[in-house]
Design a protein around this nucleic acid. Sequence first.
DNA 1: TCTCCCTTGATAAATAATAACATTAAAACA
DNA 2: TGTTTTAATGTTATTATTTATCAAGGGAGA
Lengths: 141, 141
Amino acid sequence: MKNIEKKAFEFCIANKERLTLPRQLVLKIIARNKKPLKAYDLIDKLRSRLVNIKPPTVYRALDFWQKHNFIHRIESLNAFCICSEDKLHKGAQFIICNSCGEVVESDSCNLPKIIDEFLKKNTFKPLKWNIEINGICQNCS
Amino acid sequence: MKNIEKKAFEFCIANKERLTLPRQLVLKIIARNKKPLKAYDLIDKLRSRLVNIKPPTVYRALDFWQKHNFIHRIESLNAFCICSEDKLHKGAQFIICNSCGEVVESDSCNLPKIIDEFLKKNTFKPLKWNIEINGICQNCS
DNA sequence: TCTCCCTTGATAAATAATAACATTAAAACA
DNA sequence: TGTTTTAATGTTATTATTTATCAAGGGAGA
Ligand SMILES: [Zn+2]
Ligand SMILES: [Zn+2]
Ligand SMILES: [Zn+2]
Ligand SMILES: [Zn+2]
């Protein structure tokens, strides 16, 4: 998982953003966790590295990485996971196993055609979107 | 908006469910509101009709109607709206205007093909899904 | 060094949801 | 009808999640 850290480092250099300790640690912990993490799980895990860590610090780091497409928020879980795609994308889709909790992302660069048609019918200009599918994964079925 | 109340009444008869006062009022208020309502907005609106209304009462009614597909929860807004479809459906999609807050539902009886293929590739059995699209509506553009 | 600006620290509060147990009342049954 | 059973609500308290606000720190450029 060094990859994501390298990517983050290079991103910050290129965009003159500061790779502060809270940001580094938040990203690293999310990246190393197989499953999405809730904000307070993250806080617990950070406690050993950042004394007296408080929610705002974590939420700020989460906002930062979200804004720059390094992580996503899974709305139906109130949890955060690493973006598994290498490029910026306006929409993401997640399949979430109800049994084991595993989450897999696949980006959707373009909205499915049937949705696109619905948007056209409503003259609606999409900016970002989120697709969360609950079900049973291969391992659990 | 009498329709939804009639539908609810008939549903409860047919399924031997109880159409209690909290349930009635919660459904009615959501139905009469053009925009999705947050749980605590609902509580405020209920205060005049149900003395000493408390969160659990409202959340129970919300769970009830959600379970029976009369309302949906918009995950990205923490808010609830009436289901605009007449049939039970496993998935729903919402377009949410970032400017005026209007939300429009269209059911998606079937998942878009491109998503379906992704699920097949992952041997994932979908049970329910949720698609939320943010953007700008016709009125606001 | 000084200043500006971004980031974090710290305190507090707002917002959202649930747990647990008591009470009530409708439904089921004898 | 009277009794039992079940489901829903009432009540109190707590937990979970997120944000607001202002003070303090620290790096980059003048
Ligand atoms: Zn992604
Ligand atoms: Zn699974
Ligand atoms: Zn619906
Ligand atoms: Zn609008």
